[in-house]
Design a protein around this nucleic acid. Structure first.
Lengths: 340, 340
DNA sequence: CTGAAAGCGCTTACAG
DNA sequence: CTGAAAGCGCTTACAG
C-alpha cells in the first residue's frame, strides 16, 4: 500500500526544503528553472496531489457547498441536486448533502454540523416542520457567521438571503389560462390548504385567471386538501357531484389521483376531463395518460442557486444586497389535456 | 458579524494557554475542576465548536463518506443515498455526493478529487461507460492508498473490495418463475445490453427459469435495449410481431414503456398481457395499472453499504477479507399481472 | 535562488 | 495543574 505522497516526502527525497517544493509546484518565479523541473518531474512521477484538508485549513475555504433538503426520494429535489452538483463541479466545488427528513431538529443539527468548517456556504429548502415553527435562528446564525445561504423553493421572508423560486402565482395563472383558451367552462381546482405558501399562491393564480376572463369563481369547484394521504375521497366527490370539464391540480400527486379516480368512475381522461398538474416529475411523464403539467425546472433552479452561492463566495467585498431570482416555468403539454 | 470562536481566542480571553483550553473542553483529568468549569462555561457562552477541518487534518480522518453514483435523478439511487445518509449521520459521518453521469471520465475525476483528503472512503456504483471499458484503475488506486471502497448494485469482480448487491439472477428467476406459475407460455424479456452487469444477470435468471421449466428460450422474445431514451420502437415491435402473453422487464422504465406501448396498439394490461418490472419506484406505484415488480430495497442497500464502510474505517487492523452482502428482494404484486 | 519561520485550528506527549 | 512544543500538510512573507 503506497500512501499519498506529501510535500515533506518530496522535499526529503530531493534534498531541498518544503518551501522550495511548494513554490516549484506552484510555478513560482522565485525558483530556478532547474529545480522547478526536477521537482515537477518527481511530483508527477509520484502522482502528487495537494491535500484538500490542508489547503482548506490554510485558505479558510473548503470549496464545498452544503445542501440541506427535506427529502431526496423526491424527483424535484433530486433534479435540484443534479443542477447544483453540475455547476458546483464546473467551478471546482464539491457538494455535501444532508437530509432534514422534514424535521426541524435534524435540519438544525445538520446545519450546525456543516457550519463548523465543513462548507463555505449553504443551499437549502426548508423542512415542513421549520416552515410551521417559523424558527429560523439556525439559518440566521450561520449567516451571521459570514456563511452565505441560498434558499430555494421553500423559502421564507423572515431570513434575508439570496433565494431562487418560481413565480407560483403566474405559473398557475398560465395553466388555467391555457385551459380557458381551450374552451373549458367548468374548471376545478385541487389545491392545498391555504397555509401552505405555494398552494396559496397557485390558488391565487387560478382565481386571477378566471377573473381576467370574466368567469365566476365557483367555490364548489375548489377542493382544498388537508392531508395528501387522504386525497382520494374529496377528489372523487368533486368529480361525481360537480362534473368539471377540466381540473388544475397544484401538484402531481393530486393530478395523478384525479386521473385514477376519474378512471374508477368511468370518466375518461382526456376525453371527458382534462387535467393539468404542477411539477414535471416522473409521475407526470409515466402516468397513463401522461400528464400535462407546469414544469418547475429543478435542474435550472439548482444550477442558478449554485451560481448565486459561488458568486457570493468569490466576491471579495461583503454585499448585503440579496437577490431573489425567478425561474421561468412552462407548460409541458401531454396526453391529459385536449381541446373541447 | 461574529466569526466563529477558536481555542486561541478563548485562551487569550481567559488568560490561559491553548492547551489548557483544549484539555478543559475534552474533560481531561489533568485539568483542575476550577479552570475546567471556567473554560467550559465560556465556551458554551460563545457557542464554541471545534473546527472540523482542523480536526480532520490532525486526526487524518475526515468523517465523511464519498458517494459516486451514475445519476441522482433515478429513484433507486436516490433511495440508496437516503439509506447511506441516515446510517452515516447516526455514526457521525457526512456524505459528499458526486455524479458520474454515466461517464468514465467524470467518475475518475470525481474520485481523484475526493481522494485527496476529502473523504475517508467511498461508496459507489459504476457508470455504464466504466462497465463497458472495464477500466478500474482509479478505484484500485484509491484502494491501494488505503481508502476503503464499497461498491453496490453495479459492481465488478475485477476489483477486490466490499460489495452489496441483490441476487439479480435469483430475483429475475423468481419473477419469471412467478409468471410461469400463473400459466403464461410466451414470456418475453426486455433487458439491457449485456455489458450492463445487472442486466446480464437478470437475463441469465430469465433463461434459467425457462430452462428449469423445460420451456424453450426464444430469441425473438428477447429485446436488448441499448439506449433507454429510444426504447419505444423495439418494444412496440416486440409487442406487434411476437404478441407475448407476459413480459419481464429488467427495470421500471422498460416496464412502464411496455404498458404504454401495449395500450397504444390496443393490447390491454393485464387482460391481454401481464408485465413485471424491476425496482420498486414511484413509477411502478403510480402507473396505471400499477406495476407488479421486484422490489430492490435501495434504502436497505445504502444503509448496509454505509455500515460496511464505517465498520472497515473504524476497524483498527487491516483486513483483506472482503465481503459481498446480498440484500433480499421480494415480488410486490400489483395490477399489471393476472392469472391466465 | 533557497530555506527557516509563522500560521491555519486543533491535540497530545512531555516538561516543569 | 499548566504550558511550551511538535505535528497534521500546506502556503507565503521574509531573511539570507
Amino acid at each position: 500500500m503506497k500512501r499519498k505522497v506529501t510535500l515533506k516526502q518530496i522535499a526529503r527525497e530531493l534534498d531541498v526544503s518544503i518551501s522550495t517544493v511548494s513554490k516549484s509546484l506552484r510555478n513560482s518565479p522565485e525558483i530556478s528553472e532547474d529545480t522547478r523541473q526536477k521537482v515537477q518531474a518527481f511530483a508527477k512521477l509520484y502522482n502528487y496531489r495537494p491535500n484538500n484538508i490542508a489547503l482548506s485549513l490554510k485558505n479558510k475555504k473548503t470549496k464545498t457547498i452544503g445542501i440541506i433538503i427535506p427529502e431526496i426520494v423526491h424527483h424535484f429535489f433530486a433534479t435540484v441536486i443534479g443542477g447544483i452538483e453540475q455547476v458546483a463541479n464546473e467551478n471546482g466545488y464539491n457538494v455535501i448533502v444532508c437530509l432534514s427528513n422534514e424535521s426541524f431538529d435534524k435540519e438544525v443539527i445538520n446545519m450546525e454540523m456543516l457550519a463548523t468548517g465543513s462548507t463555505d456556504g449553504f443551499i437549502m429548502s426548508l423542512s415542513k416542520e421549520t416552515e410551521q415553527k417559523k424558527d429560523f435562528h439556525h439559518i440566521q446564525e450561520v449567516i451571521n457567521q459570514g456563511m452565505p445561504v441560498v434558499m430555494f423553493d421553500r423559502v421564507t421572508n423572515d431570513v434575508l438571503c439570496d433565494k431562487v423560486i418560481i413565480d407560483d402565482q403566474m405559473a398557475a395563472y398560465e395553466a388555467v389560462d391555457y385551459l380557458i383558451g381551450k374552451g373549458f367552462k367548468k374548471i376545478a381546482l385541487v389545491t392545498t390548504v391555504d397555509y401552505v405558501s405555494v398552494g396559496k399562491l397557485r390558488t391565487d393564480g387560478y382565481i386571477n385567471a378566471l377573473h381576467d376572463h370574466d368567469m365566476a369563481v365557483d367555490d364548489t369547484l375548489i377542493v382544498k386538501i388537508e392531508d395528501i394521504e387522504h386525497c382520494e375521497e374529496p377528489i372523487a366527490a368533486l368529480l361525481k357531484t360537480q362534473k368539471p370539464d377540466a381540473i388544475f391540480a397544484v401538484n402531481e400527486l393530486f393530478a395523478v389521483t384525479c386521473i385514477k379516480q376519474a378512471n374508477k368512475i368511468g370518466i375518461k381522461v382526456p376525453d371527458d376531463l382534462s387535467v393539468i398538474g404542477f411539477t414535471d416529475g416522473i409521475i407526470s411523464q409515466y402516468s397513463s395518460p401522461s400528464i400535462t403539467t407546469v414544469s418547475q425546472n429543478g435542474e435550472v433552479m439548482g444550477g442558478r442557486a449554485a451560481k448565486m452561492l459561488i458568486d457570493r463566495l468569490e466576491l471579495e467585498e461583503e454585499n448585503e444586497l440579496y437577490k431573489t431570482e425567478l425561474i421561468e416555468t412552462h407548460l409541458v403539454e401531454r396526453e391529459s389535456t385536449t381541446t373541447l
